[in-house]
Design a protein around this nucleic acid. Structure first.
Lengths: 247, 247
DNA sequence: TGTCATCCTTGACATGGATCAAAGGCGGGG
DNA sequence: CCCCGCCTTTGATCCATGTCAAGGATGACA
């Protein structure tokens, strides 16, 4: 069963607790503990993994692909509140129901851990709990960084900020050291981008066109983006810091 | 020294680990541990407690008053990313420098714990670490709730959301069970509100006037607010949920 | 190869909130 | 008691982004 999806699994195949999700430091005993309670699930782009309010029997880590956490108001306005990239964690130990709707924005593989035994493991192995705290604090910083984007940045700056986040994360995962001049695939539709940025999809489209016209990015098709000058992009994002959404 | 500020201190006087900040379950040993490393600091409205990037030798819990976490862009645009009300915690174990600027928006008393020994204590007492994780997850939920406010709500809804948060928190602290019809003091200037909401202070003022004209709130002076019908206010906030910024 | 669905782009126009400007409270200090 | 500084309110105008509408690309599938 694990072998079926193994090719996409990064380090999860060899050692699940190498997941940023679970523990930074490997240990054979923990590996065994996790082996018993883990399983893999695949989703196709657009599939909803769970709805806000659903009962949640597992916590999970993204192995490959991209998922989104979203909130929706009664009248349909929706806001994405988190973007889950490979190695990101989802689920809250101690909480039985999902707070947010989770959707696969691209084809996706998750490594799930049954919640109850996972919680027990946390309680018995302090350094895993500690690692989880660290990750949660990173996520909190990321969410706060994003509050600045949502509250104070212009549409153009918002787009540039999002592209910078994805570009950097992509570079890290690809072990790409040449951070100047890189290309990547956008794992989001224009609509998903607009939900993330608090914009309409038309505005997203227009601003991407504008950035292209101004030479900040080069489009290859609609989804593949080439950034000739990363510093320039960061500048457009208005970031003095290192850009933030990632820890 | 503690006696000087004791009258405002709520449960902190008798047992510092009763702080939501530190631990939900009292224990004499931990009380003693904390006794050694804690001290109190007072600030006046408008005072900056620390600047983003400052070295931080303590973590702390708000005893009374209100503080704000803010981020500022090079050109001066600022966004508040967290509102610290009594019992809220500030500081990140394991991080030496402050990520955000912390400002007292009203007169304020904090209970500080020296960082190094506090970290040791976390490592040696798992259930305090566990409590800290819980609190961080609550804060993360609050930040995400706020992303919806910043990204998708109108100015009027934003104001109503903020008032609802403060009203509810106030009611809880005052042990006020009559949630319908309550009054409270705004611990924020119009400018601070605008920084929180991603608006200008003029818009904040106009929307407050509008809510007043429409009978949603009654102003007594500029800072005291009376909410005749809490449900109505929640409705204006567009919240289907219970309003969120608080855990 | 054609058709259809989905995603994306672009245009025209409307509008919510920002910006610029002026003046009204209110509290503290001389 | 008056003056001054800060906070707040209100008005006039502008502009970034939303809204509504049409049409263009791309890929899946018959």
């Amino acid at each position: 069963m694990q072998d079926m999806v193994a090719p996409n699994m990064n380090d999860c195949v060899d050692c699940p607790i190498r997941h940023r999700a679970v523990c930074a430091r490997c240990d054979a005993d923990e590996l065994e503990l996790l082996e018993d309670i883990k399983y893999y699930r695949s989703f196709t782009a657009g599939q909803t993994i769970m709805w806000s309010g659903d009962r949640m029997d597992f916590v999970a880590s993204v192995v490959s692909g991209v998922a989104a956490l979203t909130q929706t108001m009664e009248d349909g306005r929706t806001q994405m509140v988190g973007l889950l990239l490979p190695s990101d964690f989802v689920g809250r130990p101690g909480r039985e129901t999902a707070t947010y709707t989770v959707t696969a924005t691209s084809d996706l593989v998750m490594c799930c851990f049954r919640r109850k035994p996972f919680e027990q493991m946390i309680n018995s192995t302090p350094h895993i709990a500690h690692r989880l705290l660290e990750m949660t604090l990173d996520e909190l910083d990321a969410a706060r960084e994003w509050m600045l984007v949502l509250g104070r940045k212009t549409a153009r700056e918002k787009i540039a900020s999002l592209l910078a986040i994805i570009a950097r994360r992509d570079a890290v995962l690809a072990k790409n050291t040449d951070i100047n001049s890189l290309a990547f695939d956008l794992p989001l539709t224009r609509e998903a981008m607009s939900d993330y940025l608090g914009l309409t999809l038309e505005t997203v489209s227009r601003q991407i066109s504008a950035l292209k016209k101004d030479g900040v990015i080069v489009l290859e098709g609609k989804r593949r983006i080439n950034v000739p000058d990363m510093d320039r992009l960061m500048d457009e994002a208005g970031d003095d810091s290192d850009g933030g959404f990632l820890s």
